[in-house]
Amino acid sequence: MSLFFALLFIVAALVMVTGLARKIIQYAKTPAPLKIPTTPAPVNRTGVVLRLFREVVFFESLFKGTKWTWLFGWMFHLGLLLVLLRHLRYFTDPVWLPIQLIQPFGVYAGYAMVIGLVGLLGRRIFVDRVRYISSPSDFLWLVLLIIIGFSGLMMKFIAHTDVVMVKEFFTGLMGLSFGTLPIDFPLMVHLLMVALLMLLFPFSKLLHVPGLFFSPSRNQVDNPREKRHLAPWAKAMEEQRN
């Protein structure tokens, strides 16, 4: 069983990293031939960095869009971030001080994450417009994440698992030495679902993570009159025709 998980996580990590790298390379290599920032847009690079920062950290556009989705979505993502940071303690030894300090908050974040997800699921079920645009996978992603969050919280509050053993397993795995996992049901579910998420990441709508940084309507500087912007293929076309 432990060997299965060890192999699973190696494969999942490889798939996620290479899959994401492939997509990022694809996005980076595909030119944006025209200046299409949604205006009003920043007129310099610093402004663009700030704009993206506000999008990534505060979900600025979504806040303009719908307050409920923003609230649940932001709760979930911020919760997830803290939870992920908290989980670094299973991969580092000694644990960095900032990670030690956020440990208590990480637990609340777990709740926030699950509440946010349930809210998003509720919207997907009850708002007719959102229900209409949802595919089965859109529901399943939320269910998957809820299971991950719920099984995680269970291990904290209901059926403690041997976290020292889990830590040994993962720190060992990072040096490619295969250890043993405690055989607890919530842990098995938790890890299985996380691995599934990692495997599917590069093939799914989770691509919104790199996507945001490559979105021309958000990452372009508004300076088309000042600076000529020309894609390589457009340049080639020009040279051919002129």
Partner: peptide, 18 residues
């Protein structure tokens, strides 16, 4: 392959409904 907007926008939608 020629328009980054198209490739990124086709991939990135999470169906949030905003």
């Amino acid at each position: 392959g020629r328009f980054r907007s198209l490739q990124v926008y086709l991939d990135s939608c999470v169906k949030c409904g905003a």
